[in-house]
Amino acid sequence: MFENLLQRIISPVENIFREFGSIGLMFYQSIYWMFRRPFKFDYILKQMEFVGLNSVLVVVITGVFTGMVLALQSYHGFRKFGSEGLVGMTVALSITRELGPVLTALMVTGRAGSAMAAELGTMRVTEQIDALMVMALNPIKYLVAPRIIASFIMLPLLTIIADFVGIVGGYIVGVKLLGINEGAYINKTIQYLDLDDIYNGLIKAAVFGVILSVVSCYKGFYTSGGAEGVGRATTEAVVVSSVSILISDYVLTSIMF
């Protein structure tokens, strides 16, 4: 009875550690296989198309509307102090530092991370991963590493697009719709926005790309339990990736800024 209770307390903690360990191990193996010949450029390219290109539209829409709503919200605040010119700065800083990388990562998690988990999960339950191993091919190298590399490269690219369209969206709402002085808007934006803000945002995005791809691949790679297991793995991949992204965002922010 008592042992049972102890077991029920210990085992979830144990599982968390085991999971962290497995994710870390998978990341380590991926790094190891990334630098072993032959390089699977066509696989990486395919994943870049999948993670990057196919996410462009959703990222652009997210970015534009985020910028627009930021402009609208901050306008009402700044108008009370007669400093509407700061709207541009607020939009630009919020987007480049936080919302660009984070929202892009979350959108890509929803779109591509879930698909990664589902794909790898399906490959696992239909023994395609075993088939690769039987062919003396390392599934980490063929399946996981290209996805991580592609996410690592594409997330910053998507983020810079989101940053740009977000700032443009803010500009349209702020200057064209709300009639904020265009010169003040642009100059304040340029004055307060540093290159570091943009670059740190992109570094964040690259880290998020690694996190979401490693977690999603891990969840897919170790799927068990047939079609139902694939569904569960997909859900877990999205949830765990999103939460990890938000947590690591705090950590990264506290380190960077």
Binding site: T126, E127, Q128, D130
Partner: peptide, 16 residues
């Protein structure tokens, strides 16, 4: 060693 083997899986495990 695996290169000496071939295997037909239960559901064929063709790459989708």
């Amino acid at each position: 060693t695996r290169k000496k083997f071939g295997m037909l899986f239960q559901e064929a495990a063709l790459f989708d």
